[in-house]
């Protein structure tokens, strides 16, 4: 099978040359992966092509790169799943949101720095037990998703918030933070959650599911971020717009069955936050002018008492207490 690759090159010794793509054509077996094809191109056509790879079995995390515009593990991506009729070009680029060192190799320092920033080690308290900590298997099983993370960087590559704001902690670091908050042996939940609730932390995620979509190990980083948010809110760490927004939204729906868009921004800022309220005036005026201002008189739905009952029944459990 002919595999056509269009690979983005960057030579650090000629940095002025930008946006250069090089095409390779290699003959590969039917079930070849993109990684095997790249290695074939490198080994037999162009030894100057730089890429990171090792295990070939989706466990070392070296070969994350953008393939046809989306971050993937090259060793896990079969060529024939990408090309409908075969013979189409596969575009291969380095992961995004990280500076390129050479070709497909990027500088992952910011990635590692952010992981380190969440203190990614177990912090138990008190003297160690006589042997192992006794924990139910369910507690260990509940961490399965996040323990699958191989730190490949695919999520960070394609995170839509990191695209506009490199200070955001990012999906990998935040998911790793949940790994500890969710582990019953870790005793530092509250300090962790407090720190993660600060600027550029858990509340800055825009909930776009891009990380969930691209993660090759099904870690679902965004889902872990949502667990952090729920855990923080339940723990009373609510002195931030994100938490206030969630609480306000939830309370409004609980009491009326649908969203009251007039009150939501007011409650999110905090009723006494005059600066916040005033900052909304321009958009409010624009909405008014266009006839899009939601009515300040918000009617509950007919079945609102049933909504209240649903809330009473379900809204008690924290994510760390089990099924979320």
């Amino acid at each position: 099978m002919e595999v056509k690759l269009k690979v983005k090159r960057f030579d650090p010794e000629s940095p002025e040359v930008k946006g250069r793509y090089q095409e390779y054509s290699v003959d590969m077996p039917e079930n070849a992966t993109v990684l095997e094809s790249l290695i074939q191109a490198r080994d037999y056509e162009d030894e100057s092509l730089a890429l990171r790879c090792s295990c070939r079995s989706s466990i070392c995390g070296s070969c994350a790169m953008r393939i046809n515009g989306r971050a993937r593990l090259a060793c896990k991506t079969q060529v024939r799943n990408l090309t409908k009729e075969g013979g189409e070009e596969i575009v291969v680029e380095p992961p995004g949101n990280m500076p390129v060192i050479k070709d497909l190799v990027v500088d992952m320092s910011s990635f590692w720095d952010k992981v380190l920033a969440v203190k990614p080690w177990l912090q138990p308290s008190g003297p160690p037990p006589e042997r192992e900590y006794l924990v139910p298997n369910e507690a260990m099983a509940a961490l399965t998703e996040v323990m699958n993370c191989i730190m490949c960087g695919a999520c960070v590559s394609d995170c839509t918030v990191l695209e506009v704001d490199p200070t955001f902690l990012g999906p990998a670091a935040l998911a790793k933070a949940w790994r500890f908050v969710g582990d019953p042996r870790d005793a530092e939940d509250l300090p962790r959650l407090r720190e993660l609730s600060e600027a550029s932390g858990m509340w800055d995620c825009t909930r776009c599911n891009m990380c969930v979509q691209v993660c090759p190990k099904d870690v679902k980083p965004m889902d872990q971020i949502l667990k952090l948010r729920a855990e923080a809110t339940h723990a009373g760490i609510t002195g931030n717009a994100g938490s206030r927004h969630t609480i306000a939204f939830t309370e409004i729906v609980e009491h009326s069955g649908r969203l009251d868009e007039f009150r939501l921004p007011i409650l999110t800022h905090g009723k006494l936050n005059l600066v916040g309220q005033v900052s909304d005036l321009p958009v409010a005026l624009r909405m008014l002018r266009s006839g899009k201002m939601p009515s300040p008189f918000h009617k509950p739905i007919g079945g609102v008492k049933h909504i209240k009952r649903i809330f009473r029944r379900f809204a008690g459990k924290k994510p760390s207490e089990g099924s979320h």
């Binding site: 729920a230 939204f249 069955g257 969203l259 909504i307 379900f314 809204a315």
Partner: peptide, 15 residues
């Protein structure tokens, strides 16, 4: 009723 828009999921997925 409101679907929760993904926000209520942050509070309680089961709700």
């Amino acid at each position: 009723n409101c679907t929760g828009a993904g926000v209520i999921s942050e509070h309680s997925m089961e709700t």
